[in-house]
Nucleic acid binder design. Structure first.
Lengths: 331, 331
DNA sequence: AGTTTTAATGTAATCGATTACATAAAGAGA
DNA sequence: TCTCTTTATGTAATCGATTACATTAAAACT
């Protein structure tokens, strides 16, 4: 049906080798021949078969992301989509492709192995990094290219991460600018890197600036947040500002405290769509940029270039949940 | 590095043809030989190179979805993700892969053509169907397999669509059950299939049941909705129920009317995440199922099976925006 | 002019599978 | 026992590119 390199070669009166050379710009082909061949290629709108090319070159130009299915909550948040968008922005610019896949979290290493063996993919982007992640050990040992989103203590890999430290710092700084003196920070789960990084930012801001911050460990979710606030209320609530490690927590806090007539500046983290609707001030982690950079890093790595890990800055999105309080002091 | 069929053949003391036969279960291989070969395959954890297989078979086992970038609002909603999830649920079960891609809406046909010519993909799923869609003409003419999400009047293709007619019918029926008599339906843009289908459901319910429905055309968005309500308020608002063609519209309506002290049962369409938070009753379109079915249909089509188009039923999710009013009458 | 170098192109092997065709061995039928 | 099937397996072509190596012609050098 569709033309192959041999057909083009015949029509242009040259050998397939010459057509291939023209196609790949590389070798020395005379200007004359090059033009003659290009003419035929354009006339017939010829494009090489990527499968054949891949077989020969041992490189497909396809990268992979495998979402682990746990509980079924994969690919339901806007995080995944924004991330994909960033990745695709880079890849589409380069004519590269992305395979998106899902798999149960069990046997995950085996699954990566089978994908590698199938030879379809040149490299992976890893999401949902865990402590002591088996995938990383495996891929490192296989010397198969990959880039990780997020980081942990080991860091025997190239990663792209959002700057949780400065993100949290900005949040506290903003509260300080609103004249908050005693801030409550409800952290995410203890012991995971994201929580530790954000806590570091909080503490660093509290040291630099004129704010005292109390830290309580939550778990990124609503229920636990309410529980924490309940026990604090019992002892008497005397904070004049709250920072939560996620928007979900912050939203829960606002709703809960309102019932007790308590209204203080509150900041969340993540900038989920709901936050825009309810006017929650929050830290926005440029997820698109993270995706873009990860794809770029992976691509460089696959092509043998030197690659360094990267921390992408976040920005504070100021909305009513804090701005309403600025009127009290300014203007 | 990794083993090829030739290595397996040598280790098992048979020819590559025999190994291939064992691999593909097909031909007649003696029980004895089959076991001998399987043993070697398992011992070395051999897996065929999919690129080589694809070249020979002229089929890759990879399907494609191309998101059109227009304005930049692609892949930002939960629709895309849920849809992907459905597609992936099917494909991963079958060991098939999905390439997710984006492209400017201009030159879109050319882009599909180039993807086809690259031979990477066995078939497409088309999103964002338009009237008189060029892609469909092109793919039909090329006889390249594809399945469409949504449908239009032409329907010279296989599609999977959500049942907008019955979705809208259920909404009106629910309002009727709450004893609404005069309902306002704010439709989506006039002239597009989704709007027409939903309108059909509304009208059919209005005929069957004891409700009168006034229809106004909006555009699925907030601003226009508010505009419409403003002009209605001027003439005097005497509806006892509202149905909107999207959750975004419904949420805008609730917010706007509240300012005038108007509170009536309101139903939206789409079940966006916000709706759960604010308690909006809405029609949920089972997007995951739609994705799953589309992938399945495409797969059948590629494998030469007979395929029929499919309409996936939606369900009504009842929440406070209507249930609050049921107390007025029942209990 | 004769030899060497350089540039341009062609020939054929290769990537790793599948499969049409060939062949050998075993079983069936006479 | 001899021929005819049938069954199991092997040989080699093929998919459509890339590329090492060979070859030829032209340019450069002595």
């Amino acid at each position: 049906m569709s033309l192959k390199i041999k057909d083009i070669a015949e029509k242009a009166n040259v050998s397939v080798a010459t057509v291939s050379r023209v196609l790949n710009g590389s070798d020395k082909v005379s200007q004359e021949t090059r033009e003659k061949v290009m003419e035929v290629i354009e006339k017939y709108n010829y494009q090489p078969d990527k499968i054949a090319t891949s077989l020969r070159r041992k490189k497909t130009g396809i990268y992979g992301i495998i979402f682990s299915v746990k509980g079924g909550k994969v690919l339901e948040d806007t995080y995944s989509t924004k991330f994909l968008k960033g990745v695709l922005n880079y890849l589409s610019k380069k004519g590269l492709k992305l395979i998106v896949d899902i798999h149960e979290s069990s046997d995950i290493v085996e699954y990566y192995d089978s994908v590698i063996q199938s030879k379809i993919i040149d490299g992976f982007i890893l999401l949902d990094l865990r402590k002591n992640d088996e995938r990383i050990k495996f891929l490192n040992q296989k010397k198969f290219p990959f880039v990780v989103i997020g980081r942990n203590d080991e860091n025997d890999f190239v990663y792209v991460d959002s700057d949780n430290v400065s993100g949290a710092y900005m949040a506290i700084k903003h509260l300080e600018e609103l004249r908050c003196k005693r801030v409550l920070y409800i952290s995410g789960n203890e012991g995971i890197p994201v929580s530790e990084q954000r806590l570091r930012g909080v503490e660093s801001a509290s040291n630099d600036l004129n704010v005292s911050v109390d830290v309580v460990y939550g778990d990124f979710d609503e229920e636990k947040t309410v529980e924490i606030l309940k026990s604090i209320l019992k002892k008497g609530f005397d904070y004049d500002g709250i920072f939560c490690a996620s928007d979900t927590m912050a939203y829960a806090a606002i709703k809960f405290l309102k019932r007790f007539g308590i209204e203080v500046p509150i900041i969340g983290y993540d900038n989920i769509p709901l936050s825009e609707v309810v006017g929650l001030t929050t830290v926005d982690q440029n997820i698109i940029k993270i995706g873009y950079s990860a794809a770029q890093a992976l691509d460089k790595m696959v092509n043998g270039e030197e690659v360094v890990s990267l921390v992408v800055p976040s920005k504070l999105v100021k909305r009513q949940s804090t701005l309403n309080f600025s009127k009290r002091y300014f203007k």
